[in-house]
Design a protein around this nucleic acid. Sequence first.
DNA 1: CTTAAAATTTAGTCTTACCTAAATAATTTT
DNA 2: AAAATTATTTAGGTAAGACTAAATTTTAAG
Lengths: 221, 221
Amino acid sequence: MKPSTSIQDYLKRIYELTENGLPASTNDLARELNVRPASVTGMIQKLAAEKPALVEYQKHQGVTLTSAGKRAALEVIRHHRLLEAWLVQTLGYSWDEVHEEAERLEHVISEDFERRIAAALGNPTRDPHGELIPTADLKMPVDDTTPLSSLRASQSATIQRVVAADPNLLRHLDSLGLTPGIQIEVIEYSEFDNNLTVKVGRKVNVLGLNITTKIFVEIQK
Amino acid sequence: MKPSTSIQDYLKRIYELTENGLPASTNDLARELNVRPASVTGMIQKLAAEKPALVEYQKHQGVTLTSAGKRAALEVIRHHRLLEAWLVQTLGYSWDEVHEEAERLEHVISEDFERRIAAALGNPTRDPHGELIPTADLKMPVDDTTPLSSLRASQSATIQRVVAADPNLLRHLDSLGLTPGIQIEVIEYSEFDNNLTVKVGRKVNVLGLNITTKIFVEIQK
DNA sequence: CTTAAAATTTAGTCTTACCTAAATAATTTT
DNA sequence: AAAATTATTTAGGTAAGACTAAATTTTAAG
Ligand SMILES: [Mn+2]
Ligand SMILES: [Mn+2]
Ligand SMILES: [Mn+2]
Ligand SMILES: [Mn+2]
């Protein structure tokens, strides 16, 4: 049976919070899901009791996904990211507007709908923010991008991915031309404040750590 | 506040069942909603108690929509029919496949999404089955079509609307070329079985009442 | 190592939207 | 007009998923 919308949201957040290899804490989940910690404990216990279990859970030790849970999470994430790509491509949404809409649609589209938009988009590998889209057989491709913050003077790169949810930040980056697919070149690095001076097209901008750690690039050889 | 998915479905069904001018019965609603009559009574009482009331209800006398209820129903119907049109246009769904998908999406799309697809489609007035789409300000246009069953020999007409939910019937009609926008001409009428012999393109078919009462046309002057 | 603070879990409620079984009302049949 | 049938409502439950308040554990500080 297909998990409820609530369960899908829990699994998706657990996936995201455990990408660093560590279990997700009750509090972190509560914050991400806009729900009280007590509710999270209740849901986690339920997910751990499902057959097959969707999460691995030890009291007070946080929670991780089982393989069944991970599969269900990737299913939702695939829907979400394909939807974002599709809303941008076919309805002219901007990348700061798509998230909310995809957040609701992801739970109700059919597998047929999923196949149709994937095909219509040419089976894209990244969403409008550059996040990798899980494949049709629910494997997450490995991301080999590098944070812009680790580049130094004279290095050139292509922006692959921007990790930001805040629409204001996204619009700001858009206005600077810092979007996936764009070529950039690092002009200067300041070791005191970690600022990077970056050339984008013919414009040059000085970017702080708060921005350069959120942009992931592929370095030019 | 936006009504729940359940309430939206109740209001939509009540709208449809009361289009003939009569109140909708508990049993009919239960059948349409795949729910038990007792559940319908419960929900109806709740909808009648809302402020403002969404339905008018007298015990044992059936239920009708208030103006607030009708507005909420038209909102859902507009979503449904725009979605159907859009799924057919942009994702290549056939008219027998769209209904189910739209039935789920209608509850979760934003008003922004609604505006975008309406604009992308050129503000269409009918969905793929020819059903009228409520306007953006939630008025239902008047339908002035005539059932094909009432035409007689030598009359010509354009198909406007096909009232059928059964995918098999829809596919059959599609195979006969009986779809909205198509020109037809009545060759012969049989008063014994009410069959109509109809020319569609260069093909001629004999259609029974079960089909001719489901096809609505605009008669050529 | 003991205490204070923070995180987590338990216990008990609430709301929504269903259900079944039983009671009542309305409609048909005889 | 009474009896039988059908439709509808009431009463009492269940399941999901949230919440608050209180109890317990874990972690951090002194
Ligand atoms: Mn979601
Ligand atoms: Mn899927
Ligand atoms: Mn429909
Ligand atoms: Mn709307």
